[in-house]
Computed example of a mutant assay.
Amino acid sequence: MRAPVTVPMPLLLVAALVTGCATGSPVPARTTPPPAAPAAAAPPGPVPAIGTAGPTNQFSATDVAWLQLTVAMTERLLPVLDMVPSRTTDPAWRRLAARVGAAHREDLSRARRLLTESGAPATNPHEGHDMPGMVTDEELAVLRSSSGLAFHRLAGQHLRAHLAQSVRIGTAEQRAGLHPATTAFARAVVRAGNVELTRLERMDRPPIPGR
């Protein structure tokens, strides 16, 4: 049996954010040291204690949790993007769906490869969970019955929520993750997410008369 490790409070907060289990307001920082957390809660495989200092080629529990949530969120978004060609003839939306869909499929493959490398279980721990940034089955059903402007509005809301949450948890992974390739991946996700959020904002603006 492994000895329990003490997990610094900033990383406990990141773990709560990355796993998506806390949906309310951010947890306020404690003024007393947190209780020890059993190492058994960490995924199996070559995952070191979260408190490991300095660069490492191993995965922390935060790295693995972020990768797992990235996979789960991406798998929920892709069906939305896939239905765009049959729901709208708007060329801007078709270009957006093709671009974001291709990028997210690459991200999904990259996240799965890193999870395999980490030794984490292949099962999805977020199966059936409805968390921030995830499109629910009910929302997909509504999208399938929509088209035109109604579809644009709903799809835009879901894509914006997904991208905003991806940026949020990706930023947390950059700050608290330990595995270099995983934190670099998070950096790329944050950068791409911010770019797409800006593009979405521009698409939502009404055209200016005379331009």
Rank of each mutant, 00 (worst) to 15 (best):
M1L: 14
M1G: 14
L11D: 15
V14F: 06
L17I: 08
T19C: 08
G24R: 06
S25L: 10
S25P: 00
P28M: 00
P28I: 02
A39V: 14
V47S: 11
P48V: 13
G51Y: 04
A53M: 12
G54N: 06
G54R: 05
S60L: 02
V64L: 06
L67C: 01
T74G: 08
T74H: 07
R76D: 13
L81F: 08
R87D: 07
T88R: 04
L96T: 03
L96N: 04
A98Q: 10
R99H: 09
H104Y: 12
E106Q: 15
D107S: 13
L108A: 03
A111C: 03
L114A: 03
T116A: 15
E117I: 04
N124P: 01
P125C: 05
H129Y: 11
M131H: 12
E139Y: 01
E139T: 09
E139K: 02
S146H: 11
A150D: 13
L154V: 06
A155M: 09
A155C: 04
G156M: 03
Q157N: 11
V167M: 02
R168P: 08
R168Q: 15
E173C: 05
A176C: 13
T183S: 09
F185M: 11
R187V: 12
A192N: 10
G193F: 02
L197E: 08
L197G: 00
T198Q: 14
R199A: 14
E201P: 00
D204T: 11
D204Y: 04
G210L: 05
